[in-house]
Design a binder for these strands. Structure first.
Lengths: 245, 245
DNA sequence: CAAATAGTGTCTTTGAGACACTATTGA
DNA sequence: TCAATAGTGTCTCAAAGACACTATTTG
């Protein structure tokens, strides 16, 4: 620190959201089309500035999520991801972004938020591959967010956030398979889910009408952490970078 | 977002550091005594405002670390931890803190930074237990930082950041035992370290003069991630909270 | 009864923990 | 040769993967 009377430089704080869901059997991220400069007309993550200097960061994230998805908050998973503050990430001002990861269940088709902006669910592969490019450093943020989600599935009950209650074990397995982009053995999966105490609890109320034997329904269990974890098979497609900070 | 012409509220950004090291066989965190209000005279994490609005956040963290430890940067591990921005965390202004985790090797006894502030290495237990309380929300930040470090030991080569090169396997084991506050089996530990490819590489140059058989020396290996991981024994002392975001 | 989906049991291999001895140096 | 520290090998058990069959419903 320095002799005071010097005034520290203020920055602008934004909240950005990596909202993930499963649509049509694919892991998708919510993107909006920017209406203003910089990067006007380009695809970007939903987000925005805090309302005022009394608004908590997480509340701001909740508000943005609500505006974009018109969703019942409380049932959605929302966590802080990281902060992105490179000096040149916004060509005009020093803007620091607090990125959040949100997981929502499959929503009714029309996703358009209450805002007028065009909003769309885009398969994450199209973003990760670079096929679509995004404003600012949002490509990096999506990459980090997806990796966070993949990792969270191993150690936490995050997968349930993709489902609407009540759900079946098979649905849960589809979540894992889609997010990890692997195939899992049904029998081993059942065993692991049961072994993870408090992951899910049976819901002996209804049964979904289905062709074939009706499945047992479950609800979210009391544990948010999975012990033992559901380890991800090592058969990753691409070996990742090695560097550390 | 809203109709523009409205100006978003700026905030003050600080960089705070959880600097961990091993001293006298204990995991210690670097604390400074605050010279100014708020919380004047209280213990706190080292940190401060960014120098100007052109300074990268990570550079600011490096600068603060340099000022406090007078250490050769580059050899130290430094990573972003999380952002803490509760509106009431600073009684005066809206100050948002970007917390970082730094790991440094055992330093020569006098730790006093180039700054005039009193700086001290304090065993983390004294902080975690609440025996010492800290300014702002720094207790929470230390808790999160220590947990992050403990977790990082499982999956990354972070432990080497506590050592000065070259080091021995036994020294590495002491790192794990101290940070995790457990005892590990020497033979199993050797096996696991060797199994983790690229964790450490032999250094066939010198040998430390010692009483007893001299140990093989090692240097940091090429891998920053540990495969397979060195799993932490489940014998935790205190069961932790369950809640998720 | 056929098709479709749900659910379970076993075997085998691999990795983790418990455990005891040999090796090399200095005093 | 003793004390002190370094380093290794084996056995056992538990978890993980591969794998095939039974169960319950609808058309």
């Amino acid at each position: 620190m320095q002799a005071e009377a010097w005034t520290p430089p203020p920055v602008l704080l934004t909240v950005d959201l990596v909202v993930l869901t499963l649509r049509k059997g694919r892991l998708c991220v919510l993107l909006v089309e920017r209406a203003e400069d910089p990067f006007s007309g380009m695809q970007a993550l939903p987000g925005g500035f805090l309302n005022n200097d009394r608004e908590e960061i997480l509340d701001g994230a909740r508000r943005e999520l609500q505006e974009e998805t018109a969703l019942d908050i409380g049932r959605v998973h929302l966590e802080q991801l990281a902060i992105y503050g490179a000096v040149d990430r916004d060509p005009r001002d020093r803007v620091v972004s607090v990125a959040h990861l949100a997981i929502v269940p499959d929503l009714p088709e029309p996703v358009a938020g209450t805002d007028a902006k065009a909003a769309a669910w885009v398969p994450v592969e199209e973003v990760l591959s670079g096929e679509i490019d995004l404003a600012f450093d949002h490509h990096r943020i999506v990459t980090d967010g997806v990796e966070r989600a993949r990792s969270r599935l191993e150690f936490t009950a995050l997968a349930t956030a993709f489902c609407t209650e009540p759900f079946t074990i098979a649905e849960l397995q589809h979540v894992y398979e889609t997010v990890w982009d692997t195939e899992l053995d049904t029998r081993n999966f059942y065993r692991k889910v049961r072994a993870a105490t408090g992951f899910v609890v049976p819901d002996d109320a209804g049964s979904k009408s289905t062709r074939g034997r009706p499945a047992q329904l479950y609800r979210v269990g009391p544990s948010s952490t999975l012990a033992p974890p559901l380890t991800r098979p090592p058969s990753s497609e691409k070996p990742m970078r090695e560097g550390s900070a």
